[in-house]
Design a protein around this nucleic acid. Structure first.
Lengths: 252, 252
DNA sequence: CGCATAATTGACGGTTTTCAAGCACTGTGG
DNA sequence: CCACAGTGCTTGAAAACCGTCAATTATGCG
């Protein structure tokens, strides 16, 4: 596990093609990185087939990465842009189950089953890295290391969801919105992007849908926060003026 | 994977000590079974240490299986009885994050990290099987098979939680309670226990806490359901009179 | 069997949703 | 360059829903 990794993959991302977009994550900050590392390592001695990793495929706004119930073949990492995952309902409006920021994975929930449990759609012009898991060798030591990182990943997802369940169910609308904004801020910052000033690429109704609130409620609460000096919003642009107090509100 | 498994483990549970308690799951219906199978298989060629699997340890009502932040050592399967998992909060009431029925696992969420993310407590006199994972060999092929079943397991947990999030956040109190009762019924039935007539071992406030409702609301809604002929309740004993209509209520 | 605990039921108030209208931004085409 | 339409955001008023408080009843566990 501590072996030297083959050069190449990560250096691709250090070139100009990557750095001219300031909202793009470095590979070091990407959630796919531990897996990429395993693959690099694997290539050294067991000959992982070429072409299992596609870097920087551009995705346009509104484009669908995969549909619910599609056969699971590929794990995605957001390189730039934003995505939402949703569960489509006939008749009723769709159910937003998550947002995916640069550096985060999409499709990890499918890793246990055969099919994607949700649909993934770009909220803006974006780009992704694709890891084609169906081309992976299905035995050997690198596989074990890969499985370890998958387990870790899923475990984090479970923990995050437990947290989320607790939050959403027991918190007031105000707390939910405050928590949502803090969470976005944290996640952006963790991947090396500005965490106090960013664009809400998702609509108010996406946010409301995700938090279990009416879009009007989201709107009202945000203007309330602004009047209290916690944030400043103009349309989709937001800046957190008092992130600490925001956290305080979220925690009651 | 399809090799013959060593006799012994499962036959232990077919004896009289297990069958005189009618609320106990058979090993075949237990969530730990795929893992037990792997271990049996492992024992055949790589010599898994003895004593990693403890069968039928009795747990008394109110007893704590493990506390949040305890070092993760053991994976539990409920053999009989019921457990709740909760996140303790100083000052505020604890947050119930799940109920565990016979045949279901406890502690699986910890498998990715080092510590249990929640506390597990028995709701009644119960018994568990314990799988001491810290005594497992940490390499070799059986490990890979074990990892596969862990991945599958975590994946199901993630899917279940996604479903749960969607439900809790978007459904009314009535829908939540209806869904909760149907879910209990399904889970009991899946493990071979009566699904239309059972005991609600958890209190109304546990249910309310879990669903994000006041215990009074849970109570009111249950009596409402009774008046509508959907269920029949006397304190903790419940029988579902119209399970299909209950599902209908839950789905809106 | 008895007492602490849990469940039920009623009244009231606050929060959030719903419905509805007006406003601001974006992109398009004249 | 501006007018326009489309979409999403904001804001208001009324009603539904659920939580809180409180009193009563039933229970179940030791």
């Amino acid at each position: 596990m501590d072996k030297l990794r083959i050069a190449g993959h990560r250096s691709v991302c250090a070139d100009s093609a990557c750095s001219d977009d300031r909202t793009e994550v470095e590979c070091e900050d990407c959630g796919l990185d531990p897996i990429c590392m395993v693959l690099d390592y694997a290539g050294e001695e067991s000959g992982v087939p070429e072409g299992i990793l596609v870097r920087r495929r551009p995705i346009e706004r509104g484009e669908t990465l995969f549909h619910k119930d599609d056969l699971f073949r590929t794990l995605y990492a957001v390189k730039s842009g934003t995505f939402k995952t949703l569960i489509p309902h006939r008749g009723r409006p769709d159910q937003v189950v998550g947002f995916h920021l640069p550096g985060e994975l999409i499709g990890a929930e499918a890793m246990a089953g055969e099919h994607y449990p949700c649909t993934a759609r770009a909220l803006e012009a974006s780009s992704v890295c694709e890891l084609c898991l169906d081309r992976l060798p299905d035995a050997g030591r690198p596989m074990e290391a890969l499985q370890r990182s998958i387990i870790e990943l899923l475990g984090k997802e479970v923990a995050f969801n437990h947290e989320l369940i607790g939050s959403l169910v027991h918190q007031s609308a105000e707390q939910r919105v405050a928590g949502f904004l803090s969470s976005l801020s944290d996640r952006l910052q963790r991947r090396g992007m500005p965490g106090t000033e960013f664009i809400l690429t998702m609509s108010r109704s996406d946010i409301g849908n995700y938090l279990g609130l009416a879009s009007e409620t989201v709107s009202r609460i945000m203007t309330r926060f602004q009047k209290q000096g916690l944030i400043r919003i103009q349309r989709k642009r937001i800046s957190l003026r008092a992130p600490a107090r925001l956290v305080q509100v979220a925690e009651g």
